[in-house]
């Protein structure tokens, strides 16, 4: 929700336990329409497919998908558990590599104006390039069978938004805050520690949320262009060509679940590290 709402932060003064309950109640009410839609959609899907006797194999009933998920959890052909784990490892590895590289380069970029002039145009250009086209190259460079090639694909996708956002966060500091630090005779390093880094944190988390999805896309695109067959990307292709769409949907479900879990993990980190920021505050309706 943080992407959308952003409107007026609640100016709560003191929160007693009663206020806590009220807030939780309001939050439940706020998400109620979304929950209703979810339940209604699942029920309607199940009922319509059953009642009309549709060709269920392209769009199987939710119950059939769940059944396929359970049945193929540790299947030798469509090993969903193994595949999901492998894909998640690739995505998280790529996320880590890309984020680390992005943050390091951002520090270098923000420190030297010339570096900024050099690197930001690259970041803009890289944004316009369909980076997925590089997937076959990554496979050739880092070994088509090695998970590293998929990680690197994910890392490249993750790198640019992280770098661009963190650079912005380190540079776009309120000028008055810099004047204040100067009036204290603070060193440049102190300014970085006490002003620039905290200021960049919200930007970092925004980029990280974006990066979670990108890392999964990177991993799965890398998988499409060859490598181990016990990964979600290959399972999806193989099961679809074998017309086992219940398995396809189960694999897609796992991929979506992985994406949501990573996203929520970042939201959780955000609540811990930047509780003071508007994006976190405004998610409390």
């Amino acid at each position: 929700m943080s992407l959308v709402s952003g409107a007026g932060a609640a100016r709560t003064r003191r929160r007693g336990p009663a206020a806590g309950f009220a807030r939780r109640g309001r939050r439940l009410l706020f998400y109620l329409p979304a929950v209703v839609v979810f339940v209604a959609a699942i029920v309607a899907w199940e009922v319509v497919v059953t009642a009309l006797g549709l060709r269920t194999f392209v769009l199987p009933k939710p119950s059939a998908i769940v059944a396929a998920l359970v049945a193929n959890w540790s299947d030798p052909r469509f090993g969903l558990a193994t595949s999901a784990r492998a894909t998640l490892v690739e995505a998280v590895g790529g996320l880590a590599i890309g984020t680390l590289a992005g943050v390091l380069v951002a520090f270098a970029t923000s420190r030297w104006v010339t570096a900024r002039g050099v690197l930001l145009p690259i970041a803009v250009a890289a944004n316009a390039v369909p980076i997925v086209a590089f997937a076959p190259l990554m496979n050739n460079w880092f070994g088509v069978l090695s998970p590293l090639s998929k990680m690197m694909m994910a890392a490249v996708l993750v790198f640019f938004p992280v770098m661009a956002n963190v650079t912005r966060g380190l540079v776009q500091v309120e000028p008055a805050a810099l004047e204040l630090m100067r009036s204290y005779g603070a060193s440049e390093w102190t300014v970085v520690r006490k002003v620039r880094i905290p200021n960049a944190l919200p930007y970092f988390f925004t980029a990280l949320k974006l990066a979670t999805t990108l890392s999964l896309i990177g991993a799965i695109v890398g998988e499409y262009f060859g490598g181990s067959s016990l990964v979600l990307g290959r399972i999806i292709v193989q099961s679809a060509s074998a017309l086992r769409f219940d398995v396809t949907w189960a694999a897609i479900l796992l991929g979506a679940a992985a994406g949501i879990v990573l996203y929520l993990a970042v939201v959780g980190l955000e609540r811990v590290f930047i509780p003071w920021h508007a994006s976190v505050r405004s998610s409390e309706p």
Binding site: L216, F245, G255
Partner: peptide, 13 residues
Amino acid sequence: TVPIIALAPLIAF
């Protein structure tokens, strides 16, 4: 958060 390319084979079918 659903990696779109995961859906590609289905849409293709």
